[in-house]
Design a protein around this nucleic acid. Structure first.
Lengths: 210, 210
DNA sequence: CCAAAAATACTCATAATTAGGTATTGGCAA
DNA sequence: TTGCCAATACCTAATTATGAGTATTTTTGG
């Protein structure tokens, strides 16, 4: 009996693509895809599923939350998280929530298939990226940091503020004190000559940090 | 001789997917995909290309800028823009920049194929505006407000939050009480399902309110 | 290795935002 | 004209962010 897979992603084109890529194999069977977390939970209640390919950036019920619920209610179902950015702190969260794997969306199809096979056989896989976000990007980031006299940590926190996290949430993800986040925020506002959170978000977007 | 297509998108999985979906047809040929605007321009200089499938949200050189450059330097190359959100004002920009088509990423594969065929034969296709009758609302803001159930005042305040004003400053400018601004902010967060100021700023920018 | 920079953590104080309410007014449409 | 909605205003309470400091540890570069 083939393994039963389901894709949860809000981009239909990605779904069609994944389906095409994954249908080359007879060892697994694809259930009709769902477009958000709610739909996914609805299907999981009614169907027997072995592996969920889970997009993190979904409407309705976001990926991390959906993941926690799945792992709590259906511990046997394996989950492979697909995401856009390599966010190490998010990765820690995903790991903690119990996903069997984590893969960036900009991975080749062959790797995806390998990882799925690995997970179905009981393995785990966490994409190691992020350390090296491509040379050009590193260069860009260095230049950018120099221009604004920002440190790596500060840039990281600017991104997280832009992603609507509170200081508490940031401190939890980075495993540092809320006081420390507060210090970083102060330094960010001073260095960039901004006066509040809205300014930081605008800065983050204007500089393509999010 | 088949038409020559190229995909420009930073998500490898989407590329693999699109490739699989598009390879069902012999009337066109897919060039190796590129992951950002720079790479795309590099390829266009060296290869003969008929149609570009262009993602709007790319690193390095964003979609709209890449589009302008393509249309200026290679007016014969047709461009179909693929994007995440239906942003009517962005659509106007894309149209102005000369793209032959505009399609949301959450479109079925069949539609994508039809649209590509149409464009290659000299047609145009814009995802949303074409379908909505002109009598409805030519005023963007009305449509926008209806979509999110926002009032005029709320939109006004969203803009001001995006412009980094505090509630106090907003109340001063609008000659209303700070309490009133606070009420509006509450309603905004509730209606848009956001949790803080950063979310409002992101919303404002994603919807080109600032 | 050593100095500088970065990251960490804390106190005290104030400002701003968020989360629950409730309530009144004016305008517009059925 | 009557009922709904938008806009206004207020209250209490909790949470989050900002401002101005100080200080220690860790990391990094020369």
């Amino acid at each position: 009996m083939p393994y039963r897979l389901i894709i949860a992603d809000d981009h239909q084109l990605l779904i069609d693509g994944l389906s095409a890529v994954l249908n080359t194999n007879t060892e697994w069977e694809l259930l009709p895809a769902v477009n958000n977390g709610r739909e996914l939970l609805y299907v999981l209640e009614r169907e027997q599923v072995d592996l969920v390919l889970l997009d993190l950036n979904m409407p309705q019920l976001d990926g991390v939350k959906a993941l926690s619920i799945i792992k709590r209610n259906y511990p046997k179902i394996k989950v492979l998280v697909l995401t856009n950015y390599g966010q190490p702190q998010l990765q820690a969260e995903i790991r903690k929530a119990g996903a069997e794997g984590y893969l960036l969306k900009n991975s080749p199809a062959a790797l995806l298939r390998e990882v799925i096979q690995l997970i179905l056989e009981g393995g785990m896989h966490y994409s190691e990226a992020e350390e090296t976000p491509a040379e050009e990007n590193t260069w860009f980031l260095d230049d950018f940091m120099k221009r604004y006299q920002l440190t790596r940590r500060e840039v990281e926190i600017i991104k997280m503020i832009g992603q609507e996290l509170t200081s508490k949430e940031i401190s939890d993800r980075l495993y540092i004190s809320e006081f420390t986040v507060s210090t970083h925020r102060k330094n960010i506002l001073r260095k960039l000559n901004l006066k509040n959170t809205a300014g930081v978000v605008n800065f983050a977007r204007e500089n393509s940090l999010i």
